[in-house]
C-alpha cells in the first residue's frame, strides 16, 4: 500500500481537482481520504453517497446550570476570553467566545458549571462513483480543523486500505502550515505539492515544503498554470531542483478545470482534452515514483 498526500499551502491551485482525477483513474483500487475538512469538496466531484455518518465531537464549552448558580461572579472574573456575561441578572456563557479552558468550572464555589463536549461536525464513509471507498468529514459553524479530526479521517482510511488490500491511499491534504497539515502528512509515502505559477503560489510552496522536509517524506510537484508567469515558473523549477523534488508536470492555465467542476465531473470524465492527457501522464508518473520507494 502506498499513501500519497496532496497538499498546496495556498487555496485555488487545483489541488482537489487533481486529487479527484487521480482517484477517478485508479477506480476501486484506491481509498480516498479528504483531509481538507475546512473546505471539504472532494465529495462533490466524486459523487460520494454518505452511506455512513457519525457525529464528531471536539473541544468543550462551559455550560452554567442556572438553577444552582448563585451568581457570585467568580467565573466571570477569571475568564480571560470575555465569554461570560450577565443578562437578566443571570451569568451566561457565550459559546462562541468560550475556549473550553475549564478555569471557570474549577473556581465555581457551587459546582454549577459543567464542561460539555461539543458536536463540531460529521464524519462520513462513502462509496464514490469511481467505485472506491472514501473517508471524509464536514465541520460545522465556528469549528476548527484539528490534528485530531484529520487523524481520525486518515486512520479510518488507512484501515480500509489495508483491510481491503488496496494499492493506493489518496489523501487530499489540509491547507496551511499548522497542526492539521502535519497530521495529514503523517505516515505518507509521497507528498505531492500542487502549486501555481504566481508569487503567492511560490511563497506558500516554500513555507509548506519546510514542513514536508522536516518529515523526510519523498516529494514531487505539479506546477499548475505554468504559462501565467514564465519567471515565477523558472523560480519554482530552480527551487524544486535545489531541494531534489521531482517535477511531475507543468500544466497550462486551463478553464477546463472550472468547466468540469461546474458539471461536478472530474477532468477525466469531462471528455478528451490536453488537460486530461496531462493528468493521465502525471498519475502514471506518480505511480512509477511510488514503485521505486522502498
Amino acid at each position: 500500500m502506498k499513501e500519497i498526500v496532496i497538499i498546496s499551502g495556498k487555496g485555488g491551485t487545483g489541488k482537489t481537482s487533481f486529487a479527484a482525477s487521480f482517484a477517478y483513474l485508479e477506480k476501486e483500487n484506491a481509498v480516498i481520504a479528504d483531509c481538507d475538512v475546512d473546505a471539504a469538496n472532494m465529495h462533490l466531484l466524486l459523487d460520494a453517497d454518505f452511506r455512513y455518518q457519525e457525529d464528531f465531537y471536539s473541544g468543550e464549552v462551559a455550560v452554567i446550570d442556572e438553577e444552582n448558580c448563585v451568581n457570585c461572579g467568580d467565573c466571570k472574573e477569571v475568564c480571560r476570553f470575555d465569554a461570560i456575561h450577565v443578562t437578566d441578572d443571570q451569568h451566561r456563557v457565550d459559546p462562541i467566545s468560550c475556549e473550553g479552558c475549564w478555569y471557570c468550572s474549577r473556581v465555581c464555589p457551587v459546582e454549577a458549571i459543567d464542561m460539555k463536549t461539543q458536536k463540531v461536525g460529521d464524519f462520513y464513509l462513502s462509496m464514490t462513483k469511481a467505485g472506491s471507498e472514501m473517508v471524509h468529514a464536514k465541520l460545522g459553524f465556528a469549528a476548527e480543523n484539528s490534528g485530531k479530526l484529520v487523524a481520525k479521517v486518515k486512520n479510518e482510511a488507512k484501515k480500509l486500505t489495508l483491510a481491503n488490500k488496496k494499492e493506493f491511499l489518496i489523501v487530499d491534504g489540509s491547507p496551511g502550515v499548522g497542526c492539521p497539515v502535519i497530521s495529514s502528512l503523517s505516515g505518507a509515502d509521497l507528498a505531492l505539492l500542487v502549486t501555481e505559477a504566481t508569487v503567492s503560489g511560490l511563497h506558500d510552496l516554500k513555507r509548506v515544503y519546510r514542513l514536508v522536509k522536516s518529515f523526510n517524506i519523498k516529494s514531487a510537484c505539479i506546477i499548475n498554470k505554468y504559462d501565467l508567469n514564465a519567471d515565477v515558473t523558472k523560480e519554482i523549477e530552480a527551487f524544486l531542483e535545489e531541494e531534489n523534488i521531482i517535477l511531475v508536470a507543468k500544466v497550462a492555465y486551463d478553464e477546463t478545470f472550472s468547466k468540469a467542476l461546474s458539471q461536478a465531473k472530474t477532468i477525466i470524465e469531462y471528455g478528451d482534452s490536453n488537460l486530461k492527457t496531462e493528468i493521465e501522464k502525471s498519475w502514471q508518473h506518480i505511480k512509477n515514483i511510488t514503485k521505486e520507494l522502498k
Partner: peptide
C-alpha cells in the same frame, strides 16, 4: 491521546 486536539 486520541481525544486530544493538540499536544498528543
Amino acid at each position: 491521546t486520541e481525544t486530544m486536539e493538540h499536544g498528543a
